[in-house]
Amino acid sequence: MQIYLPIAEMSVPIELIVILGTFVGFVSGVFGVGGGFLTTPLLIFMGIPAPVAVGTQSCQLVASGISGVMGYWRRGNVDFLIGTVMLVGGMLGSVVGIFFFSLFRYMGQIDLMISLLYIILLGSIGLMMLFEGFFTMMKKKTVRSEFNRLKSPPLIARLPYKMRFARSKLYISALVPGGIGFFSGFLVSTMGVGGGFLLVPAMIYILGMPTLLVAGTSLYQIIFTSAFAALMHASISQTVDVILAFWLIAGGVIGVQLGVLVSRRVTGARARVILALLVLGVCLQLGIQLFIEPANLFEVVIK
């Protein structure tokens, strides 16, 4: 069944949107990532204008984030204090990111910039997670001991404004989670991704948080950061399509609940290997698009 989208100003098959929402929601629930790095390219691939894809999915992330976080919350797997410190940084990061986004758009070549950012970020993070995940699986160590070993490099230990995060059993400078949040907010506004794929490893490797708390806490942070980004997109560029968002949410809320159920049967290391392969797949696809001679050398852009 075809449905007309009032902001994208085009017709799309409704089933395709719901399936896409379910798939991304499932990934979101299993790994505690927002799934924006999948939604944005897939929506654009369906022919939806890139700004509308970015604006709309930031709104959709709010819904899949909240239903996802509830699953973790019930089981007490959210560190609200550290999450709140992160989202304060996230808001600041969004504002800076929107400034840069406008600047790149003014200079042209925003598409190229976004592709390169995706390739660099997804590629390096994917590889890092893949090797670490395999390493852990080979050694058959518990996930927890792995983090204690990686915790608190000397530079981070010397930073001021130390706070005690009882839930995560951490005594660490507020600048560290704040800085991670800032970077995530910057990514939301420049690349249109929730940043969960970056938050999860950053929280594991840099903060040294227990894996059990990471997914829930990053989802909690993503809700607010993406809500802030959605508001920016709606008021500055009018690119939030609420009809498209509704159907994505309808699919996403189903998917995310399934994902949360599945996540309890997946060990930390194995989950990271699967997520790493997913991230590398998207990275490879973007790389192919950029480096292989396109069949059509021309691109038609309607202003």
Partner: peptide, 25 residues
């Protein structure tokens, strides 16, 4: 979306929050 952009944005987010919460329950 054109004439009341900020309000539209807030309502969209509230709808997203509400539907996410509803399914969570």
């Amino acid at each position: 979306a054109q004439d009341h952009a900020v309000l539209y944005g807030i309502v969209s987010i509230l709808l997203a929050l509400a539907s996410g919460w509803f399914v969570g329950i």
